[in-house]
Design a protein around this nucleic acid. Structure first.
Lengths: 345, 345
DNA sequence: CTGTTAGCGCTTTCAT
DNA sequence: ATGAAAGCGCTAACAG
């Protein structure tokens, strides 16, 4: 078993009896206009015969480009089983289909993120698409020193040097409010997410804004303490229901919490939508088959991701500079009416 | 808007008033045993302050390694919506979680594959995990000249210099045969996939082998012309049923075809499992909710992918050479009994 | 059309 | 503990 050293351009040039520059040209000129076709063929033949592959690293070093973008994902077991990331990947991958760009997944625990990028390792990417941004929230500065064009998916946070492509969370909140209001609900409780989540803040803002219009009188109770998880949502609702059973509807700022509420209601023998109506947010696949199917806000993640990738590539093609890449794109969301909201009176 | 040129090690060295070698050491020595701790701190501070990131390419060129593996996937819209690839990604990503390796997706149309790898571009990866191998089948030689350790997922084909991690298709065929036989079926038709698919060949081989044991007398009809798609399966069955309606069961070499058959039977007013029993292969998620739920062979793709990634990393850590990486790992498959098979007599 | 040469940014001996 | 200098494999002027 010999340790075959990978071939270099020198090996080929020697074999072909030409200079390395000629080999380089033969490889890089699409037409053979810069190389005698006889030479071209000889070189091509040799390359083919020996299975030579140029070193990307060396190429890149010379100033050419890697044509690769990085996708930052939370590093946790089974991420890819989440519909969220499936849509994100599908969108990005489809957007990149017709381009020459490929992508690299950068699985990173938020805490590690700063280290990796600030100090030790660079990544072989020209730009970044970041998901789950709010986890990295405390390290906003990271992005500014990255010196790479970044686009952040579905988490509009203006205080950072990146481009944001996101569902319109404010609109989503408004849609939910409008729906509940139209169905006659006048006493509504809202289950919020973590305080640090801008998703949560924006959705709530939209929800409230709807009721700020003249004449829309409702009694709103904001239930803090939610963390976007089922378990916590149940606790919060359980506590709440002991004190204020007159509420007729819950707006949960994500589907997980809504699912938790649904289940809790069932367990205590209350019915949705009969006793309480529930609206969720995200349009998680499980909401289609929950009991009852959940009325929720659909976030077009596939489209968002696609758009994000398009913007990034556009940006990459435009300038070779490492400027920041500010801006923001909001995509409309949609209310999916299912069976968890019932008209009052 | 200034075009900020990315910082280099020279910038930092100048700023710190030390040589580039010292900066390099400061970055690479985990402990500060090779650098005076005062120097270390100064350099680290500067790096941090200016957000310097070393160029991976330059590093790699020097001989260090990229710590990235490539995943070859078919380049087609919506790949990531397929449960198959979701499982593969999840498995690989989970296996890599505890390692220092990251992965890059190489979306490639089979036809392009040869070109990319043989001639034009190298990829910034140390090894490859290949899915959907049978599409690349005609280009077997590609892998041999890749000079990279390759592992192929779920498609055991021995004539190639790579490591194969796969479900045991022969066993799957046997399981199906055994089940149908045990349920009393004695006249069975098999819908095969494309001739070129080794999956199809191996599954069929297992199926037949079971009946080669003494005393297991059945009448087997092999239906050629299938292509692993629903549409074709319907045609094949339609034609067949006109001539040989005495059959009691179908074994379809993948679930798509089985689903096609199920639907066809329904359309012509025949019932499964009452009139005909059907067994599929793959355990596609749709088979759980089909009407009736389909009895099928579960292929542990998540585990397969995980194992594949483990092997590759193991191999990468072991040798720095570019030798081929032969071998083969077969993981057991499992029969999922649902409602599409009915006992005879 | 082809060869020569100067980098690209970093790691690594080899000195000091 | 630190500096000087030699590459790593390739691309891109610049000559010829």
């Amino acid at each position: 078993m010999t340790h075959k050293r990978p071939l270099t351009i020198y090996d080929i040039s020697e074999l072909a009896g030409v200079s390395i520059a000629t080999v380089s040209r033969a490889m890089n000129s699409d037409t053979s206009d810069k190389v005698a076709s006889e030479t071209f063929n000889r070189v091509a033949g040799l390359i083919d015969k020996h299975g030579y592959t140029p070193s990307l690293a060396a190429r890149h070093l010379g100033g050419s480009t890697l044509k690769t973008i990085g996708i930052v994902l939370p590093q946790s077991p089974g991420v890819f089983f989440h519909h969220y990331y499936v849509q994100v990947l599908a969108g990005i991958s489809d957007a990149l289909l017709e381009t020459e760009y490929q992508f690299k997944l950068i699985m990173s625990k938020p805490a590690q993120f700063r280290d990796r990028y600030n100090f030790r390792t660079g990544e072989a990417v020209e730009g970044l698409i970041v998901t789950h941004w709010h986890s990295f929230f405390s390290h906003a500065s990271v992005f500014e020193r990255l010196q790479l064009p970044c686009v952040v998916i579905n988490d509009p946070e203006p205080n950072v040097l990146a481009h944001f492509v996101s569902g319109d969370h404010v609109m989503g909140g408004e849609l939910a409010a409008q729906h509940l209001y139209a169905k006659g609900h006048r006493q509504i409780a809202v289950l919020t997410g973590p305080t640090c989540s801008s998703d949560s803040r924006l959705r709530l803002r939209g929800f409230r804004r709807f009721f700020q219009q003249a004449g829309r009188r409702v009694e709103l109770t904001i239930l803090p303490g939610g963390d976007f998880q089922q378990e916590k949502a149940r606790e919060v609702v359980a506590t709440f229901l002991k004190t204020k059973p007159s509420v007729t509807a819950f707006f949960c700022l994500n589907d997980d919490m809504a699912l938790g509420v649904l289940q809790f209601l069932r367990e205590i023998g209350r019915s949705c939508p009969k006793d309480f109506s529930v609206v969720g947010y995200d349009d998680d696949p499980r909401t289609e088959t929950s009991v009852p199917p959940l009325t929720t806000i659909h976030v077009p993640l596939y489209t968002i991701a696609k758009e994000a990738a398009r913007r990034l590539v556009e940006r990459l093609k435009a300038g070779k500079d490492n400027e920041s890449f500010p801006g923001r794109t909001l995509l409309p969301v949609e209310l999916m009416e299912r069976r968890s909201v019932r008209p009052r009176r």
